[in-house]
């Protein structure tokens, strides 16, 4: 694939200051920082579906917001279609933003309860002048049908729709400005399984039909496996493993990925609960993350050398993992 990737994230850092009392400031006590992203590097090809997976507080949502330019970065670059989003002038940024849209977790809080669905979708169409004013209504109907809703839904209020229908509206709204990249943050997490399946298939169909690129952020490994060709696993603000989903899931190379996969309760009673003891303890605080490998405090394979920053080990199949023992971990799972 010589083609330039649609999105390249290079060495991205983001720290949030922890609130400090005025007195503590006067006393010269040090300012603490929450490490939300540290040295995150990955690329997403055009038309690809990239899954960002990790547990609460790993920084996956922050990463999505950084990509969209909703938060300023502290260091690093985000190249979208060849331009560094973090360095462009405001006018260009606005134009770039139209090309990347977000689908939120909770479509109820992201839709104005007093605005009819049709108006909610027409708003971005008018703002960005996507179609002439006399065609807006027609375009709204077309978008509603594209996401599997009747065009009559335009006259409804969000409260009259079910959760799955509202999520479809959220998707239609994101699609209205004809973006290249869709960032979906836990977009199916609030939905029941039967409805979740509908929305997953819709997102995948849209990606194929419209040539969209999808950055799909989720804590749900099953959903990522279903939808995403490529996966990036996050832990405490760092990406610990990246590669084709089928390969990473079949033979994880990072001990955290391995533990995460072993933790999923499999919907098959003949598979006994994984023999692997569940990962002990809980993720450390991102305020003072461990030095060296962030996972070493919970890692069953940790050794002395893990106190230094782990190398990014390149593996066959276009994969890498940030672990001294990545190759050994992966090969140990060869059947």
């Amino acid at each position: 694939m010589a083609e330039q990737p649609l999105l390249s994230v290079i060495g991205l850092d983001k720290y949030f200051p922890l609130r400090r009392s005025l007195v503590a400031g006067f006393m010269g006590q040090p300012q603490h920082w929450v490490q939300a992203a540290q040295g995150v590097t990955f690329t997403v090809a055009r038309g690809e579906s990239f899954g960002l997976v990790g547990e609460s507080g790993c920084g996956k949502t922050t990463l999505g917001r950084l990509v969209l330019g909703l938060l300023p970065v502290d260091d690093g670059a985000i190249r979208f279609d060849g331009q560094d989003v973090t360095k462009v002038d405001p006018a260009t940024r606005r134009a770039l933003r139209r090309q990347m849209q977000m689908v939120f977790q909770d479509p109820y809080s992201s839709l104005n309860p007093r605005m009819r669905i049709g108006r909610a979708i027409a708003e971005p169409l008018r703002l960005h002048g996507i179609v002439p004013a006399d065609q807006v209504e027609h375009e709204v109907a077309r978008l509603l049908e594209r996401v599997g809703l009747p065009s009559s839904a335009a006259g409804r209020y969000p409260s009259e729709l079910s959760g799955g229908q509202r999520q479809r509206v959220g998707i239609a709204r994101a699609l209205s400005v004809r973006p290249k990249l869709l960032v979906a943050d836990e977009a199916v997490s609030g939905l029941d399984v039967s409805v979740r399946a509908q929305v997953l298939n819709l997102l995948d169909d849209l990606r194929r039909d419209l040539g969209l690129t999808l950055l799909f952020i989720s804590h749900d490994l099953g959903v990522i496996e279903y939808l995403c060709e490529t996966v990036g696993v996050m832990y405490l603000g760092t990406m610990v493993e990246n590669g084709p989903t089928s390969q990473v899931f079949a033979r994880p190379a990072h001990p955290y990925t391995r533990a995460l996969l072993a933790s999923i309760p499999r919907a098959d009673p003949t598979l006994a609960q994984s023999d692997e003891t569940p990962l002990a303890g809980e993720p450390p605080s991102p305020v003072n993350p461990p030095s060296g490998c962030p996972f070493r405090t919970r890692c069953p394979d940790a050794q002395g050398m893990c106190e230094t920053s782990p190398p990014r080990v390149t593996l066959p199949g276009g994969r890498w993992a940030a672990c001294h023992f990545a190759a050994e971990t992966m090969n140990a799972q060869l059947q």
Partner: peptide
């Protein structure tokens, strides 16, 4: 899981992801 009899149970089991879409398509 092996022999669901009620069509709803069958449908519920068919709507949980168990691999890639290519290998195991979901039927909502």
């Amino acid at each position: 899981f092996e022999n669901p009899r009620h069509p709803y149970t069958v449908a519920l089991l068919n709507s949980i992801p168990r691999g890639s879409r290519a290998g195991h398509p979901l039927h909502p």
